[in-house]
Design a protein around this nucleic acid. Structure first.
Lengths: 135, 135
DNA sequence: CTGGATCCTCTATGATACTG
DNA sequence: CAGTATCATAGAGGATCCAG
């Protein structure tokens, strides 16, 4: 039973019964960061192999310099990404997943695979909803 | 090989080579919606069992009326959630996961379980980062 | 090459009042 | 009970310029 059902919602109710701040919710702590606009994209690329800063910019052409820096920094801060600076001139910086990043992405990736397989069904559901009286 | 590696990043590069709009990215289509502030919480509760509107409000006390309505509506629009109105007086509305919602959550849930197991490590990483010169 | 600093815009979210 | 409508705000994200 514990193997199958997530303890999350039970803990959630317990937390709320105690009046705990939901900002300390384990799920939100992790998911809110990973669900940002660019984090999924960068994680995918880093899961494939380490990348230079400039490589990431080139592979994600519509990301702003500010957001790639900030997103990578947030991912580094949470322990998912390792940032290594090579003291060349000019300097080169390589980003890679940490062990924790790899571990996390093994779980996150399943949602990505679901999205790959089912995004058309989602789009269809949206169009159907919008075409109905509910839209 | 195809079993293990996600085709996402390969497709991503192909899309970008064609100059496609990244808003049509399969992963972003799905993930951006599910990573919102309240969607994970509501999905967890609905994955457990169907809930009335008022039940959800009670179980998530710090959500505003506006956002619970909007989040549930977004999830319904994307085909994850079913909304059934019982014509009682006053009306009662029950929300539940659709088959697609159950399917999606089976994948999403693994990230939740990872978060449950590792959120302390994430918090520790944050504190270490903030305590270092990088913070 | 890899950022930091600044200013600006837009979207997500919240607060409040009203309704079948 | 289960919303809708309106107004207000905070934070995410973008554009641009500057620097080691």
């Amino acid at each position: 039973m514990d193997q199958i059902s997530s303890p999350t919602s039970a803990r959630l109710r317990a937390m709320q019964a105690e009046g705990m701040n939901l900002d300390s919710c384990p799920v939100r702590t992790v998911v809110s960061r990973l669900g940002s606009k660019w984090a999924p994209l960068l994680l995918q690329l880093l899961a494939e192999r380490p990348h230079r800063f400039s490589e990431l910019r080139r592979l994600v052409p519509d990301i702003s310099q500010r957001m790639i820096t900030q997103t990578l920094r947030d991912l580094e801060r949470d322990g998912y990404v390792n940032r290594s600076v090579l003291p060349t001139k000019p300097p080169s910086v390589t980003y890679s997943l940490t062990d924790m990043g790899v571990s996390m992405f093994e779980s996150y990736r399943l949602l990505f695979e679901w999205a790959e397989a089912n995004h058309q069904a989602v789009r269809a559901a949206r169009e159907a909803f919008d075409a109905s009286d509910k839209g």
